[in-house]
């Protein structure tokens, strides 16, 4: 199943018949999809569907047990996570996407220094602070003591300043107040405008559909829908998430 229109664009991320497992427990079954370059793709599904697993497999945190994964056309199937990261894939994981025991500045420096020269990194640091003044105020505070929203901002600041080719965000809005959610989506929009392709895992379906051009729906570890967002209204999406998995009209 690939999203319509994908043929026209070089894919930022491509899954071909991917299976994945945690030890003896299989979590993904024959998942195939494409995230077209420069687009925003939303990955939806009920709890435990395997959305986070897709995100983890995409960035090499969890090994796939079958199938191929391509990033910008390059096969990265059994590559370690840091090599995939170096190809320009960033991943903001579920929960706490920062180093709690490092201060704000060290969090930023760690990422910048691994991709940029010392001088460019100092530059990037200034730009990050300029974009998020709140982080500048808290630059020597331990990231673990930031509020949930500030932690997500810190995670986004790292990618905003040095835009990756592909950004995978996993439920970045979970538990945030509406104002904070707005701010997260504003940042995501900025990142997309900078040319980054996005794979957005989201529970708040209407918010995701505002931004996304393509939608993937996972159920019980299988991909059941892959279609342009324009074909889905928010109400329909809710419905899709609640119908049983059985026969699927994923042919779009």
């Amino acid at each position: 199943m690939s999203a319509p229109g994908a043929e026209a664009l070089p894919a930022a991320l491509q899954f071909e018949h991917v299976d994945a497992a945690y030890g003896r427990f299989r979590a993904l079954f024959d998942v195939s999809f494409t995230v077209p370059s420069g687009s925003v793709t939303a990955l939806l599904g009920p709890n435990g569907a395997g959305k986070s697993t897709v995100a983890r497999v995409a960035t090499g945190l969890v090994p796939s047990t079958a199938g191929r994964i391509l990033v910008s056309g390059r096969d990265v199937t059994h590559q370690p996570a840091w090599k995939i990261t170096r190809l320009g894939v960033a991943h903001a994981p579920e929960g706490r996407p920062v180093f709690a025991s490092l201060d704000v500045e060290d969090n930023l420096r760690l990422t910048f220094l691994s991709q940029l020269s010392r001088k460019e990194a100092a530059d990037a640091l200034e730009r990050a602070y300029a974009r998020f003044p709140r982080l500048a105020e808290r630059r020597s505070q331990l990231a673990g003591t930031l509020s949930g929203g500030e932690q997500r901002m810190l995670a986004l600041a790292r990618v905003l300043v040095v835009p990756p080719r592909l950004l995978v965000v996993d439920e970045l809005t979970l538990g945030l107040a509406p104002r904070m959610v707005d701010e997260v989506y504003r940042a995501l929009r900025d990142i997309r405008d900078a040319g980054t392709s996005l794979l957005v895992v989201e529970q708040q379906i209407p918010r995701a559909l505002e931004l996304a051009e393509f939608v993937l729906v996972l159920r019980k570890g299988r991909l059941v829908q892959a279609r342009p967002a324009s074909e889905l209204s928010a109400g329909l999406a809710e419905e899709i998430l609640s119908v049983p998995a059985a026969p699927v009209d994923g042919s779009s």
Binding site: T59, A81, T85, L113
Partner: peptide, 25 residues
């Protein structure tokens, strides 16, 4: 130093270090 920073980061999570583009190994 940068090496020290990486080691402190490792102490918390080698996987997060990988996501920063560094080989945890």
């Amino acid at each position: 130093t940068q090496t020290g920073l990486r080691m402190r980061a490792m102490a918390e999570s080698p996987r997060m270090v990988q996501l920063a583009g560094l080989s945890a190994e």
